[in-house]
């Protein structure tokens, strides 16, 4: 199985709720030859996509997702870093072909079709003996992926939305209305209330760039006699400190015997 040689790095979904089981050598099982008998998904499939496929096959009982669940024997290759995600959706015939072919041709560097950078050769993992991070997890790859946006805030039960949806508008498409290719604005224009008679561009400098916010005018504070006394004393101390900083001469101090 996938994690035969490495007992330390257990995929998260296989981690038991108690810690003792983590370091212990796992008890190995072999798959039943009769595929139909197992209803529950085997925990061996460690790849995220195969799990997703399994869930999809439960939720949407459609043909296309079913061949991927028996193809879980091919999961060792999927766990390995190199092949890009796209190849996993290859026809089920690949499941029969053993993985070695990809390993045997390290000379021709493969390019990831998402980020267009050469993929690291697979055998590096074995050479250093250290687990390599999958290419898909690299920062470059993640940045190049098409970004998915949070869904629109619109209330899906609105009658108006239903109408627009029947004519093919998708609130999450981040497109406005209108003929294809010439879509309009997505959000209504925001009204801004202007009060008073301040001229255009107040708060901007000569080039039209916003000025730094002006410090709020300091409030005049009234002090009672005690606070006043403290303040006077503080001011005196500060004045003394400043005077020292400016006029103090080390030589003079030495002479006076203070600076030691």
């Amino acid at each position: 199985m996938a994690s035969e040689d490495e007992d330390y790095f257990l995929p998260l979904e296989q981690v038991r709720p108690f810690s003792s089981g983590v370091r212990r050598k796992r008890v190995q099982f072999v798959r039943s030859s009769d595929l139909d008998t197992t209803a529950t998904p085997t925990p061996a499939s460690s790849s995220g996509t195969s799990i997703a496929d399994t869930y999809l096959s439960i939720v949407m009982k459609q043909a296309p997702s079913s061949p991927s669940s028996p193809s879980s024997p091919s999961s060792p290759t999927q766990c390995a870093p190199s092949p890009p995600i796209r190849t996993q959706s290859a026809p089920p015939a690949q499941a029969i072909i053993p993985p070695p072919p990809t390993v045997t041709v390290p000379a021709a560097p493969e390019f990831c079709d998402v980020c267009n950078i050469p993929l690291p050769p697979q055998d590096i993992e074995d050479a250093t003996g250290k687990k390599h991070r999958p290419h898909e997890a690299s920062l470059v790859h993640q940045i190049c992926l098409t970004h998915s946006h949070p869904p629109s805030h619109l209330d899906r039960t609105r009658q108006g939305l239903r109408y627009l949806s029947t004519y093919g508008w998708d609130p999450d498409s981040r497109l406005g209305l209108g003929a294809p290719g010439r879509e309009g604005i997505r959000e209504p224009i925001k009204p801004r209330v202007k009060l008073g008679t301040a001229g255009l561009g107040t708060g901007l400098d000569r080039d039209g760039d916003p000025l730094p916010p002006r410090p709020a005018p300091t409030k005049v504070q009234k002090l009672n006699s005690k606070q006043m006394r403290i303040k006077v004393a503080e001011d005196k101390k500060r004045a003394e400190r400043i005077r020292k900083a400016f006029y103090q001469n080390d030589d003079v101090l030495k002479y006076l015997g203070e600076g030691v």
Binding site: L154, L164, Y167, L177, G184, I185, R186, P188
Partner: peptide, 18 residues
């Protein structure tokens, strides 16, 4: 009827139409 694809020079915001 198809207010979504009616070819206006500046189509309004979906929320306004809704």
């Amino acid at each position: 009827d198809d207010l979504v694809h009616f070819d206006l020079m500046d189509p309004p915001a979906p929320e306004t139409l809704m």
